[in-house]
């Protein structure tokens, strides 16, 4: 039940980001939509690994080694998402660098000004 709510929230975020990507004309808003899609994907990936009544896969005072197998959530999606968040930030930096160069060349932030390659 919990993971279903989180899964639907992540999928909704991806849909909102996709709509923003397709319908805005300002470059910075398109970049924010990309970031939204990334965040939604991370949420969906973590929600899929949920095990009913599970807890975090870290062994400390409250979770001993022998009982860990039956009481933790799946660690693999969390391990994938941990690096994906930092990589998403770096890719946003590349997109912003592109936006700066585009602004330097045409002095406007609307993508309607870049029609050179249409045939």
């Amino acid at each position: 039940m919990i993971s279903q709510i989180v899964l639907v929230t992540g999928l909704l975020l991806i849909l909102i980001g996709l709509w923003g990507l397709l319908s805005h004309r300002n470059i910075l808003r398109i970049i924010i939509s990309f970031s939204l899609i990334g965040t939604g994907t991370h949420i969906v990936t973590v929600a899929i690994g949920y095990v009913r009544n599970g807890t975090a896969p870290i062994i400390d005072r409250t979770l001993d080694v022998w009982g860990a197998v039956s009481r933790v959530v799946d660690p693999i999606p969390s391990a994938l998402v941990v690096t994906a968040i930092v990589i998403g930030m770096a890719v946003t930096a590349v997109m912003l660098a592109f936006a700066i160069r585009l602004y330097d060349s045409k002095k406007t932030l609307s993508i309607d000004a870049f029609t050179d390659s249409k045939w």
């Binding site: 039940m1 993971s3 279903q4 899964l7 899929i48 690994g49 949920y50 095990v51 009913r52 896969p57 860990a68 197998v69 039956s70 933790v72 799946d74 660690p75 693999i76």
Partner: peptide
């Protein structure tokens, strides 16, 4: 989508 009740085999072997 249905929630898992127990870990998949690969995840179980990693946790162990």
């Amino acid at each position: 989508y249905t929630e898992q009740n127990s870990l998949r085999p690969l995840a179980e072997s990693y946790v162990r």
